[in-house]
Simulated assay, not measured.
Amino acid sequence: MNRPLSSAERSAEQRQNWLKEEARKARESRGEAGQMEFWLRLARSRMAKDVKANQPGVYAGFALVCRLFITALDQRVEGNERIWNDLLQYAEQVVAKHPPRN
């Protein structure tokens, strides 16, 4: 028999469900661009909170992720899809193991 969820666990579960639902709504109303915009807004909000909390490396980390993404796009345009495919595969693995919280 499973124990009842604590309030923190229920809150985390509700947050995950909300994120999934909002991403789904964004995709249904505006397509993949809408879903991308939703995650960008969420990332921007989270980054602003981390900067206010004096968390180091927020800007540098985001800049590095953007540079990686641009490099993967550039390589794909040049006919080398290895970095693009590896990036997507790794991202899918990480997101599957670590759903968003708070």
Rank of each mutant, 00 (worst) to 15 (best):
M1T: 12
D74E: 09
L88W: 10
A8G: 06
P4Y: 04
G61V: 03
I70P: 04
N85C: 04
M47W: 06
D50R: 13
A33P: 02
E92M: 02
A96F: 00
R3D: 15
G57T: 00
Q75S: 03
F69T: 15
T71D: 11
S11Q: 10
A43H: 07
P100R: 02
Q55P: 06
F69A: 15
L40G: 10
Q75V: 00
A23F: 14
K20H: 14
K25I: 15
G61E: 01
R15C: 08
A26E: 08
D86K: 06
A91H: 02
P100G: 02
N54M: 10
L5D: 00
S6D: 04
A96Y: 01
V95S: 05
S7Y: 07
N54C: 08
F62Q: 09
R67D: 15
W84S: 04
L40I: 11
N54I: 13
A8N: 04
K49Y: 14
A23Q: 14
N80T: 00
K52L: 15
L19D: 11
M1Q: 15
P99C: 03
F38K: 00
D50Q: 11
D74V: 05
E13I: 07
H98I: 01
R76M: 05
Q16W: 10
A72N: 04
N54K: 02
R3N: 13
G31L: 05
Q75M: 04
N85A: 06
S6G: 06
R27G: 11
E13F: 06
E22R: 12
G61Q: 02
K49V: 13
